[in-house]
Amino acid sequence: MAEQQAKWLSCAEGGAGSEPGSLVRFARLEQLLDWGRANSLWPLTLGLACCAIEMMAAGAARFDLARFGAEVFRPSPRQADVMIVAGTVNWKMAGPIKTLYDQMLEPKWVIAFGNCAISGGPFVFPGQYAVVEGVDKLFPVDVHVPGCPPRPEALIEGILELEQKITGTRRWPRVKTA
């Protein structure tokens, strides 16, 4: 955190990382905005199926998504930054969900949470008639979080991953696997 702030400050002072020579420096404003955006991602309440319960659990007491500024679940797509597609999308729901995506203001991101949102998950078999085999068939997806359902920690990791995608730096050191 401190490291990131120091980097940003050095950026603001025209230090390492900023482009020299230009009076108008949009890049810095963009960086500032991105920093703000990454630290207060507002997800859209889009609980579709089983994964929604794990999304709720991530927002509740034990996992406390608020530590990462992403606990403000908005019911309205116009107030949301990130759509967490938590659950199975079928063709009847595909229309409404696309409308929701279109209603979200730029910049916007999508997390495909769980196997169903990634690929249709367990509901794909020859002759299946209902399920959309991955929400990336409907709109672009930024982060895929696998699991059936993924654990709340996985959602937090997905949020961190998305933050990294937005700012280019990672907020939290990656956990090393033995």
Partner: peptide, 18 residues
């Protein structure tokens, strides 16, 4: 349960695909 415009009956044994 199916989409409003559905014209198929998936649990018939001769149903193959949509």
């Amino acid at each position: 349960l199916l989409p409003e415009d559905a014209d198929y009956h998936p649990l018939r044994k001769d149903f193959t695909n949509v």
